[in-house]
Structure formats: structure tokens, C-alpha cells
Amino acid sequence: MAHSSNDEFFAKLVELFDYRKGKDHGSIVLTQKRLTYDQPLPEATSDTILPDLHPPQPMPILIRATNAKGKEKRRAKEKVKLSTVVDADNLPAFFERYAEVCKVGMNTLKPRDRRRKGKAKKKKGGAAAVGGP
């Protein structure tokens, strides 16, 4: 399957998160790794035993996203798989946008506690919460 462009990837990722919003269970899995397929690397010599440690030029990064469906769901074409390749130059811009999309999409996580004052009066419960990780 061909990789999407970065813009396409973000559009589809937002869809993926939106689809999850109405549901009360399920997962979204995001993966990143160095893209090594079809990338030029110098031969391993006695000087450089592992040439991947110091590649001559920066390597692109492969980003994947799925809705973690398997087996029957995969047969029913419900599995969504997205992937994109980010060039080394685009990394900071990409991840800023990525962070924004994830922040908006992951809305079932615990929001920051804004009832500090009420909690301070109750005190003991609050102290225990702060002690936690």
C-alpha cells in the first residue's frame, strides 16, 4: 500500500479519532520507526561494523496509524491502516501538527483538575492525589 502524503495522513488521522469519539471502547495505535527499506546505506566494513549507527545522510521516518482491528473485522474491511513518510527536514513541523491532532483526538483522558480550591479545603484527599505518580 502506498504511503499517504503528510497532509492526507493528518486528514485521515483526524477522521480516525473522530470515529472513535462516539464509542466507549477501542484503540488507536500509532507507530514510528526509521524507514530503512530501499534506503542507501554503506556496506559494513571492518571500520564501520554497524553502518546504521552513523548514516551519511539523515534517514526518513515512517509513521503508521491503525484502529487496531483484527481477524473478522479485517475481513469485513473495517480495519483502517494509514502510513506516511516524514523527511528529516520536516520532522519538527510534522510533530507539532501531530501533537495538536492527538491532543484534540484523545479526549477521554483525564482533564487537568480545575477544582483546586475546593480540593484544598477538603485537603486530605488532595494530598493523597498529589503523592501519586
Partner: peptide, 25 residues
């Protein structure tokens, strides 16, 4: 593992930092 929404963007940005290492930048 976390359940805090406040951590999300920081964590993703740290993924970006690790991405720099992956890219050998």
C-alpha cells in the same frame, strides 16, 4: 502509561525528539 490529557502534547513532542534520533539528525 498515563491517563492525563495534560501530558499528551508534551509526550508527542518528545516522540518528535526521539524521531530526530531515528532520522540520525
Amino acid at each position: 502509561k498515563t491517563t492525563k490529557a495534560a501530558e499528551v502534547s508534551r509526550l508527542i513532542l518528545s516522540l518528535g525528539q526521539l524521531g530526530r534520533r531515528m532520522a540520525a539528525l
